[in-house]
Amino acid sequence: MYPHERSLVEKYSADPFAIVGINSDSSIEKAREVVEKNKINWLSFYDGSPGGPISTRWNVTGWPTIYLIDAKGIIRYKDVRGKEMDDAIELLVQEAKAEQAAEKSK
């Protein structure tokens, strides 16, 4: 998963796109080590454990769990994977760029 996510961050570095993680590793030291070792290039909330407050509120019971949120903050996809996820990201990024362009031309 890490190499693919890293490549997404690189691919969309000039576009309105970000990965936001919620990390549930058992200690913050461990989380920092994982970030460094895997050259993770996105930010993550640290949730303390799989039963942490964010995961509990979001009712997460399996990892990884994925949500795709559009530029307006609306949940658009849940638990998409692989090519389906990549296609969905592309669609949402193009949509966001089109909206930005429309804003500018107003």
């Binding site: 796109f17 990965i19 994982v34 990892w63 949120i69 966001a96």
Partner: peptide, 15 residues
């Protein structure tokens, strides 16, 4: 604060 960007929200852990 990420509003304006498409977000891949990823619940993850290294285990």
């Amino acid at each position: 604060s990420f509003r304006g960007k498409v977000i891949l929200l990823d619940f993850w852990g290294d285990w």
